[in-house]
């Protein structure tokens, strides 16, 4: 009879103490990789595909310029527009924007500012060229044409 008693007193629970740790690990992964989207992109963004892509080394040095046809064509028209942060700007305001972005960086890093151009494939070169001329004038010469990796079949 004592045999029966022993077997029934054995612990049948699966230890779940490690479960929170596993979840925390996943949590930390997502916390680290997450980038909070602080801007609402108001232009169409179908990025071009290319193969010779380089990664951005330091994210803090990057500022974004979005160019594309506005999503809300009823309100903003169908012509491609330039968006930085949360607002539409014109070519002339690029210098101001660059200077604002440069002010956020420390003095030694200001020349290394990289402009990431997120341009929709449907945009014509005219507006992009105008933006580039302004960037040259405001001495933000490092550019990155943001694109997605093309995989050949």
């Amino acid at each position: 009879m004592s045999k029966f008693k022993k077997s029934s007193s054995a612990n049948q629970d699966i230890p779940t103490a490690a479960l929170p740790d596993i979840i925390f690990m996943l949590l930390f992964f997502f916390m680290v990789t997450t980038v909070m989207r602080e801007t609402d992109i108001m232009v169409k963004q179908k990025l071009p595909r290319a193969q010779q892509l380089t990664k951005i080394e330091r994210k803090s040095l990057v500022s974004y310029i979005y160019i594309g046809e506005p999503k809300n064509t009823g309100l903003y028209g169908e012509e491609p527009k330039i968006q930085t942060n949360d607002v539409f700007i014109t070519e002339k305001d690029i210098t101001l924007f660059v200077n604002q972005e440069k002010d956020k960086l420390s003095e030694v890093e200001r020349d290394q500012i990289t402009m990431s151009m997120k341009v929709d494939v449907g945009v014509k070169m005219g507006i992009i060229s105008d933006v580039q001329q302004e960037l040259r004038k405001s001495n933000a010469r490092k550019l990155l044409y943001s694109s997605i990796l093309r995989v050949d079949e």
Partner: peptide, 8 residues
Amino acid sequence: DKGIAMLL
């Protein structure tokens, strides 16, 4: 964020 880098 990847892309084609260029220097103006």
